[in-house]
Design a protein around this nucleic acid. Sequence first.
DNA 1: GGCTGGCCCTGTACGC
DNA 2: TGCGTACAGGGCCAGC
Length: 257
Amino acid sequence: MRRQIEPLVVGRRIAEAWGHPSAKFAAAPDASGATIHSVGRRGKYLLLGLDDDRELIVHLGMTGQLRLRPAELDPYVRAWWRLDDDAILELRDVRRFGRIGVVPVGEYASLPTLAAQGPEPWDRRLDDGGLWRNLRRSKVRIKTQLLSQRPLAGVGNIYADEGLWRAGIHPARRSITRREAEDLLGGLRQVLEQAVVNGGTTLRDYRTPDGDRGRHQYDLECYGRAGEPCGRCGSELRRSIVDARGTTHCPRCQRRR
DNA sequence: GGCTGGCCCTGTACGC
DNA sequence: TGCGTACAGGGCCAGC
């Protein structure tokens, strides 16, 4: 999404903006008058650099989509920014799990998950046991730790299940070995890379800014495939709840021990 | 300070 | 057919 948004907005001044009155979106108009000079990303957060030393931060939640306004009216638009070329960038978010912030560069106190999140998955600090050390700080279940964004950034429910399946780690375990953490890092990098190439995972809502559906749902090995045979050992994939999150794993490849 | 569980939000699926 | 209920989950926060 970052890659598609960038050429549409960089260099454009925000002439006018609107945000849904709920606290999650109300900050959108604060960016009015500023010019967008960059589009970055940290984890799942899009960071639009403004020329007045602030950032417009957008999190898409589960159902959020950034796009240029299409012709038809849409009741699920939660914020919009009219640019100086009269294009309108809008955030459509049916379930309102997304959020928007406009803050001085790097001041993320109002977005605690962004402030506390770990390195990007490809950050070399995670190599040589780095991820293992980050995970070792807590006794929370391994999957829940991944979803917290603290050991590393950007892993959500789908990619957590996929990464754990690739590494053969049971999602409810509370500690893993250094070797397992290396495998997990490799698995997560693999699945994230593949998913980006595939344009994301569309199970229902996700769309790219062009309105296209992602294609990674066709490459999922584990998530959402409970009842189907494991692609590695043939055992039936099993669905469970891990800390209130729907979870799929292979009872044979991913033993609890 | 770490951890758990509940809440937000709305479309969809399903049972009666 | 129509209604009620359960469910999906990312991030935040109260309470332990």
